[in-house]
Write a protein that binds this DNA or RNA. Structure first.
Length: 431
RNA sequence: GCGGCUAUGGUGUAGAGGCAACACAGGAGCUUGUGGAGCUCUUAUCACGGGUUCGAUUCCCGUUAGCCGCC
């Protein structure tokens, strides 16, 4: 069988950092790399030409959203995700597991997977939790924080899988690890993820452990389902072979607890995945250490993707601790509200001070937006809610991230990672 | 010229003799496996001058402005 997915480490750098290249059926990804998020088979406001011009090499779409609309069979009939959206490059799909959190415990509640509490994570054992509490979490009852319970009817978790109601029309659906993999095979991305559960950062230790152990069992089932497709290669049609060519990444969980993270890395790392995703919730201050706990244990020759991160400063820290690829909604989502990235930090282009500022957003930026438009014009587009605002902002923000990844990669390759990182951090203000 | 009505933030509206409310607009912030959304904070010496009163943005008189009607 022709090998269509491969990962080669070209150079190791400070700490666990490495620069490498991932090869997929749709092209190469030079790592460390940032995947643009295209949840519904579209990087919002950009055409594929713009995605490519901005330097993005891989797009991540979402199984949950595409399953609900237009349905994975439509995408399969179109010839797969890349054909459907006319994106010729590499693609990934998230397994839908994250929506168990974002549409479950976090639904309608402005809860982030990133927690900012200063609570120690060195002492994982906290006060014992009544088993009813764990059952409530599984059944979609979330603790509102004041002791009151909020009923959430969108998601229910059991050993076999997850029942959920569509966020669109309330219709009932069920995902299991097998189903998630089948859907992802139909969607046909180059890299797919095992079905996992991402518990809320506010979930107690007992629940984090339970969810992690369930995620491990689901990982084995995801892997088995994926191998079933691969075994069918010999007698299968060409279309079927496509399915077997996909790389499957397992997901490490464990929340903010060191012992769970290490246990999860050991368990998932021992499974026959092509690479790994690190998922779940983090303490903002401890993203680096949480990542290092895991990457000290995962097999070093396989790629590691940090799901849903992140912030530029977090990305430097994660690369230093062994991460190869990232995805995050921040640059594209924030671009739509006028929050734009610069070397000096993020700015809100709608601020009054930019209204009469005719200089480019960033003097030395090579993106289409900075090369052709002024801060004043951008402020005007956002203030008047013109559609073009999203496009120009997204082009700039994604360019910022691809240049950032290029700089990080160059740092590793040239043994200048530390200098580059220090230089970036010195200039980049977090306000 | 005469009569009537109305004057509250940038706009449109509440309100009550004692902390001036709401919407939008304005100013600022939040956004981490998506959310073209949303949320938080913030912005007013109640047209002007006099009077009554412990106290007036509120009641009274006048001025000014706008609107409506009449000659």
């Amino acid at each position: 069988m022709e090998k269509v997915f491969g990962f080669t480490i070209q150079k190791k750098g400070k700490g666990l950092a490495r620069a490498g290249v991932m090869e997929t059926a749709h092209g190469k990804i030079l790592t460390p790399a940032f995947a643009a998020v295209g949840t519904k088979a579209s990087v919002k406001s950009l055409t594929p030409v713009e995605i490519k011009d901005v330097g993005i090499s891989v797009v991540l779409a979402n199984t949950y959203h595409l399953y609900l609309e237009p349905g994975e069979k439509i995408i399969e009939a179109a010839g797969g995700l890349g054909k459907f959206m006319n994106w010729p490059g590499p693609t990934m799909t998230d397994s839908g597991g994250f929506q168990v959190f974002s549409l479950g415990a976090a639904f309608g509640r402005r809860q982030s997977k990133i927690s900012f509490s200063k609570k120690s994570n060195a002492t994982p054992r906290q006060k014992p939790v009544h088993s009813d509490v764990l059952e409530n979490i599984r059944m979609g009852m979330a603790d509102s924080g004041e002791g009151g319970k909020t009923t959430n009817t969108l998601v229910k978790i059991d050993e076999d899988g997850v029942d959920f109601l569509s966020y669109k029309d309330g219709s009932k659906h069920r995902f299991t690890p097998e189903r998630s993999i089948q859907i992802q095979q139909s969607i046909g991305a180059d890299i797919i993820f095992a079905f996992d559960e991402c518990p809320s950062p506010s979930a107690p230790y007992e629940y984090q452990r339970e969810a992690m152990e369930r995620t491990h069992r689901w990982a084995l089932r995801s892997l088995a389902e994926h191998k079933r497709a691969r075994r069918g290669l010999a007698r299968a049609s060409r279309k079927k072979m496509r399915k077997g060519e996909q790389a499957l990444f397992g997901i490490v969980q464990g929340g903010r607890y060191g012992d769970l993270r290490k246990e999860s890395a050991k368990a998932v790392g021992a499974m026959d995945f092509d690479g790994f995703g690190i998922g779940g919730s983090f303490e903002k201050e401890d993203i680096e250490s949480a990542v290092s706990w895991v990457n000290e244990i995962l097999p070093p020759e396989k790629p590691r993707h940090l799901l849903g991160i992140g912030d530029p400063l977090d990305i430097w820290g994660a690369v230093e601790n062994g991460i190869d690829t990232f995805d995050c909604v921040a640059p594209t989502r924030e671009a739509r509200t006028g929050s734009l990235y610069t070397r000096a930090g993020r700015v809100n282009i709608t601020n009054a001070k930019f209204v009469k500022d005719f200089s480019p957003l960033e003097e030395h930026c090579d993106c289409y937006t900075c090369a052709n438009f002024s801060r004043s014009y951008l402020a005007h587009l956002y203030r008047t809610k013109e559609i073009l605002a999203s496009t120009l902002g997204t082009i700039h923000n994604l360019r910022f991230f691809t240049k950032l990844m290029g700089e990080i990669r160059e740092g590793v390759l040239a043994d200048k990672f530390e200098d580059f990182r220090a230089d970036f951090a010195r200039k980049y203000s977090t306000r």
